[in-house]
Write a protein that binds this DNA or RNA. Sequence first.
DNA 1: TCGTTTACTGCAACCGTTTGCGGAAATGTT
DNA 2: AACATTTCCGCAAACGGTTGCAGTAAACGA
Lengths: 325, 325
Amino acid sequence: MNNTTLKKISGLLGLSISTVSRALKNHPDISEKTKQRVTELADSLDYEPNANAIQLRTSKSNLFGLVVPSISNFFYHSFISAVEEESRKNGYALMILQSGDDPAIEILNLKLCRKSRISGLFACISNQTGNIDAYLKMKDLEIPVIFFDKVPELNNCNKICVADEASAAMAANTIILKNKKKVLAVFGNTNLSITKKRLTAFTKTMNGKIDLLVHHANSITEAEAITMECLPQKPDTVFCMSDEILAGAMKAIQRTGLKIPDDISVIAISNGFIPKLYFPEITYVETSGDELGRLAFSSMMACLDGSTFTQELTTMSVLVEGGSM
Amino acid sequence: MNNTTLKKISGLLGLSISTVSRALKNHPDISEKTKQRVTELADSLDYEPNANAIQLRTSKSNLFGLVVPSISNFFYHSFISAVEEESRKNGYALMILQSGDDPAIEILNLKLCRKSRISGLFACISNQTGNIDAYLKMKDLEIPVIFFDKVPELNNCNKICVADEASAAMAANTIILKNKKKVLAVFGNTNLSITKKRLTAFTKTMNGKIDLLVHHANSITEAEAITMECLPQKPDTVFCMSDEILAGAMKAIQRTGLKIPDDISVIAISNGFIPKLYFPEITYVETSGDELGRLAFSSMMACLDGSTFTQELTTMSVLVEGGSM
DNA sequence: TCGTTTACTGCAACCGTTTGCGGAAATGTT
DNA sequence: AACATTTCCGCAAACGGTTGCAGTAAACGA
């Protein structure tokens, strides 16, 4: 069984294609009687307009692109989930592409987006991305680009970010408030701007008040190893910059058999899933991918509505108390 | 700056559109010299063929659809990741839609797929899906459908599944081999076929050899509560049917302060992420979303190549030893 | 009864590509 | 020199919609 088209419907009804088209979009020129005849037949034939033909004719598509290093990541998938949901509610579809942190693939993905004539792009640049020309090309083509999370250091573009500084400061303040004396703080890869921001804000808020051991880890395993090394120095608190690091630190703590929060306290910056896997649940500063996603989407809609002024938005962070402090 | 089209290139070069089109696809009718002139200009103008026009003309698209209850799920995102990667490598894009287990949204998503004239669909039906007519309609339109994980009880369609029975049996056999005497086995929602299959195979393999406490849980919280209730009965092993249940059970075990594996052993069926968050790492039977994804993709390609015979495939499961037994 | 307005509907061009077919120029064959 | 082949290229229709414009019949006004 082939697809139903306007032509098919018009043939069956003895009307012209244009009349059918107008009837289906409730155009005032068409009589009620005709409209009804048309819609009835269209329904019974499961007519679905060909989105490709529409975009060809109108140069408007109902497709957004989303490029991201990897969807297999706690933070991103809540973000993606939110964007996808909002898109659907607004009649858009979402094409999701992942780069695996490979700049070559990233460029390929952007090409794919252009080929599909997306009408907007959500982008999180990979760690390795040096050159963002491919993204700028999008702007040349008047395709709005909303950068999220990992954004280029560039003015005049839309960015939606987690409040890195505020989150780190919030965590630091919590530690101070709880009267802790010696903190092991584990951060991520030194090259990432997210690490720099969180590290700076964290140490600045600490302001030398507390004995601080700062370390960096690139993976769960590294985080575990570093924590194991430092535990003998008896910190009373471990701060973890991310979920990945939290997972590693927790393994080390479980390995040594320390009790949380009696022997040691733990606090993290997290999207909220991992902290709830342990007992007691870990206290964390929440960076909501979901909220970020909705923010990104509304920013996209603003662009599409013709807003030309660019904005940099950050989400608020919230302290979620578990039993680990 | 507007998009470059064949027309624009042909105008600039004083050639016809058809010649340009052929030159770009390396058609033998076109001379080398012309080909070179064309490709050079096309490159410098960043020409990208309009995918919509192509699908309109050829009724072939480079788009696959993927509908799933939620991408925020450990198992699915590794599956999706794999399908997405394979798709990209083969020149396809992937449109990902989630239903949130709502049949109405599911139908909406399928409509969107048809509107976009996808050339193939990967589908995981939601728990609530009663009626799969919308999927059958796809088959009517000659759009291949590959069901994965949660598949309809229908013959004559392509299904890619985890080896539920084999996995559960493998877990049960491991427990027997380790000479355990009393097992708390926590399963998921009774209505799911996945639960039924795993439960049946598990108990059958156990064959009454071991003292068995069977319970069901629908969430992390429920799994934690149930485990808490049962621990006083001193099982020497906890079996968890899924990651969700494992997370709950682990919270209960941590709460009571039992030591793994000295006080109690733990084994699960899992995708492999959660078990590695604990120390000792949990022993689990792996159900690889990644492998499933690649299998699904190759099955899709077979359909597209004209293979009409339907197949039901299952992936092999592997025991991954942590230190929890 | 004869314009004029109103209410419907159809014509045709267009979006960007693909592709069967036919044609002109260049080359090869006697 | 006359004809047959190649080689290279363009014409035009088609895919499935949208939309400005024009056309027709019916209803209206005088």
